[in-house]
């Protein structure tokens, strides 16, 4: 399973080539529309990483009597990668916002959702630091991640639907259809697959580093 992430070596260059060479520019937006193939996958991975952190925390809390410490490390690593992708999604989104709407930031509901997701990640790492001396740290931070995960659907799906937004809904919308030309749709799906593989690849690496660190700590004891 872990070798499947090595497909990123092939899929990522293909996704980049398709974004610049295969996909046509969107009508009205011009060449700036190519940001779609980077911004949407980054935002997707931000939410995916957070959800996986939450699911791993649920597994840690409710299975194995809190003994499966590798799950906490994996949740931490996923959150760290998610934070990085959230920063990149926010940055790419603000550049696109400047090109499309004339301002880097205008508190559109979707912009607000991604910044709140970033705040949740920052809060998680702050809490982890504040609990460094506490022996129950892993259980408490896992509980916070699960709690925060429950609030994410309210941001990502509910709030932008209550308040009007300038943001387009190319992937998730009321019709449950992707409103894009077929070449754009294929490029977008390839980019999403590439970024998902990249996330899995980095997470796998980070988990291996965590396992080595744990082993070192065990040897020192």
């Amino acid at each position: 399973m872990k070798y499947i992430y090595r497909l990123v070596y092939i899929v990522m260059p293909a996704a980049i080539a398709m974004a610049f060479l295969y996909a046509p520019p969107a009508e009205g937006l011009g060449e700036s529309s190519r940001l779609l193939y980077f911004h949407v996958p980054l935002a997707w991975v931000s939410v995916l990483a957070f959800s996986i952190s939450g699911v791993l925390s649920v597994l840690f809390l409710f299975t194995g009597n809190g003994e499966r410490r590798e799950l906490v490390h994996a949740a931490h690593n996923s959150a760290a990668i998610g934070l990085l992708f959230t920063v990149l999604a926010t940055f790419s989104g603000s550049v696109w916002s400047k090109l499309s709407w004339g301002a880097y930031w205008n508190w559109d509901p979707r912009q607000t959702s991604i910044i709140v997701l970033m705040l949740v990640y920052i809060a998680y790492f702050s809490l982890e630091s504040a609990l460094r001396e506490n022996p129950s740290r892993q259980r408490i931070v896992s509980a916070y991640l699960v709690f925060a995960m429950v609030t994410v659907p309210f941001f990502v799906f509910v709030v932008p639907r209550i308040f009007p937004s300038l943001h387009p809904d190319p992937v998730i919308n009321a019709d449950r259809q992707v409103h894009l030309e077929s070449a754009m749709k294929i490029s977008l799906m390839t980019a999403i697959a590439a970024f998902t593989l990249l996330y899995g690849y980095i997470l796998n690496l980070a988990n291996r580093v965590s396992a080595i660190n744990e082993q070192k700590k065990g040897d020192l004891r």
Binding site: V116, L119, V120, I122, A123, S126, L127, A130, L131, E133, N134, S136, I140, Y144, F147, A148, T151, F154, F155, V158, V159
Partner: peptide, 20 residues
């Protein structure tokens, strides 16, 4: 209550959850 630096930490962890 289980952590250190409680005064500063409470708004940090509460704001993102309370924002909706």
């Amino acid at each position: 209550a289980r952590a250190g630096a409680r005064g500063a930490l409470f708004p940090v962890i509460s704001l993102p959850v309370s924002l909706p």
